[in-house]
């Protein structure tokens, strides 16, 4: 069974540590700060709440909501200690962002004081900090992907030889429909990374996929797919030592097929695969002897103007 794929954002929210996303510059007030002074602090610092600290120890937390209650009751002179929340949820620096998200959704609090191993207050974290941290991390990821794509597309300029080519080889197992298409998928991805023209990449992917399916459907021992890529063209060789083709001209006729019922149920084996490969390829060469295996070679030029 395959692992359930999780999105990059889900991954990041587990990877990011609280200390990476928290706000380190903390504004604090003391228990005897008046609500009127608190209002000024919140306004000047453009924040919606702050920890209450006495002699270096955090004793509570006070928020905009508490201030609004004070305002509506016309009581702005009483000290923060009268209105603060004393049972404060905290979170430690080395926990992951997901821990904070869980506390936010479980308790409904809007901010969490962050404490280090010694229990000292070192920061504060809000939902906004987490969103901001995630966006920054995604941006970093995006740049990394851009860079690796850039490097891949310049591989042929970076490595100098008289004839540079990239050789990719994939084993194809017989009757293994579940993994069918993996080779073509990877070759498609490689060409995309190398900056290949999308239409041409699509032709390569379709041709390789049909060749891969042929090996899965028709052989007993499987085979191999090789893609040799250089800046001008990709050469695909699909090789197997399977049963071989009795009559190549007949096999090339649209609709002619020797595929089993099993392959047809999967949506293949209708006798158009080889024609489809020929349509996608710029050059195609098929050699086979009954009992001696099959070798299919196709060439697709990678520049839109042909050669």
């Amino acid at each position: 069974m395959k692992r359930v794929e999780i999105t990059r954002v889900q991954e990041l929210i587990y990877e990011l540590k609280i200390e990476q996303v928290m706000t380190k510059r903390i504004v604090t007030v003391t228990p005897d700060t008046s609500m009127a002074e608190l209002r000024e602090q919140l306004r000047i610092n453009r924040i919606s709440g702050t920890p209450v600290v006495e002699n270096g120890r955090m004793v509570g937390i006070i928020s905009l909501e508490d201030l609004i209650k004070s305002l509506s009751e016309g009581d702005m002179e009483s000290p923060v200690s009268d209105r603060m929340t004393r049972d404060v949820y905290t979170i430690s620096t080395h926990e992951s962002a997901i821990a904070a998200v869980k506390i936010f959704s479980k308790t409904g609090v809007g901010r969490l004081p962050v404490v280090n191993e010694d229990g000292n207050l070192v920061g504060i974290i809000t939902r906004g900090d987490i969103t901001h941290g995630l966006l920054k991390a995604i941006e970093k990821d995006y740049h990394a992907e851009e860079i690796s794509r850039y490097r891949a597309s310049h591989i042929f300029e970076d490595i100098i030889s008289d004839h540079t080519s990239l050789l990719l080889r994939y084993d194809v197992r017989p009757r293994d429909f579940d993994r069918g298409g993996e080779a073509s998928s990877k070759i498609k991805r490689a060409l995309t990374r190398l900056g290949g023209n999308p239409q041409i990449t699509r032709r390569v992917a379709i041709a390789v996929y049909e060749a891969e399916i042929n090996i899965i459907i028709h052989t007993d021992r499987g085979g191999e797919i090789m893609a040799e890529i250089n800046p001008e063209r990709v050469r695909i060789v699909a090789l197997d030592d399977g049963p071989g083709i009795a009559d190549i001209a007949q096999a090339m006729q649209p609709g002619f097929s020797t595929a089993s019922e099993w392959a047809r149920e999967m949506g293949f084996g209708a006798g158009v695969g080889l024609n489809n490969i020929q349509k996608c390829a710029d050059k195609m060469d098929l050699q086979s002897t009954l009992g001696g295996g099959t070798r299919l070679q196709i060439i697709i030029y990678l520049q839109p103007d042909g050669k």
């Binding site: 069918g180 239409q199 949506g267 158009v272 489809n276």
Partner: peptide
């Protein structure tokens, strides 16, 4: 018939099909 899809479908299309095996998704990918 997945080979028909591979031969005729246009890039950016939606595929309507009665087949549900993973090869339908592979075909779509290619």
């Amino acid at each position: 018939l997945m080979s028909d899809v591979l031969t005729h479908a246009r890039s950016g299309a939606v595929l309507l099909t009665g087949l549900t095996n993973p090869q339908v998704v592979r075909t779509a990918e290619m």
